[in-house]
């Protein structure tokens, strides 16, 4: 019983940390970062910051996976995001 309650508390705590709001805030931060970098790189060499951006993408990806593991949303297959994913896959195929 106690173990089950502990697991529930842990899950609730994790859900507080990895709530949709956290993912969203990370997304806004990563988006703003990429946007600002795209403007800045026209004027100055900012390669260390670009690597930081790559790191940010990994964090965002990890957060998205954590969010999915916790919430397991019912995914509806829709054409619009499916085409975007397909384009991304095609890009990878093109580079292969």
């Amino acid at each position: 019983m106690a173990q089950g309650r502990d697991a529930q508390t842990k899950s609730a705590r994790l859900k507080r940390v990895f709530g949709p709001g956290t993912l969203q805030a990370l997304g806004v931060f990563a988006g703003a970062w990429h946007f600002v970098m795209s403007l800045l790189k026209r004027f100055t060499e900012v390669s260390p910051l670009r690597y930081a951006e790559l790191g940010l993408f990994f964090i965002l990806g990890a957060a998205a996976v954590a969010w999915y593991m916790l919430y397991r949303p019912k995914i509806r297959v829709k054409a619009v995001p499916a085409i975007l994913l397909g384009l991304l896959g095609w890009f990878a195929l093109s580079c292969a």
Binding site: Q24, A25, G27, G31, F57, L87, F91, C95
Partner: peptide
């Protein structure tokens, strides 16, 4: 690749969230 990931993986989902819920926390100040 990084730009495409940002467009498809960050900007499109943020826009989606904006349209779906009416607001995205932190986006206004950003």
């Amino acid at each position: 690749i990084m730009d495409t990931l940002a467009l498809f993986g960050i900007f499109f989902p943020l826009g989606y969230r904006w349209g779906r819920t009416g607001r995205v926390s932190g986006s206004g100040p950003a």
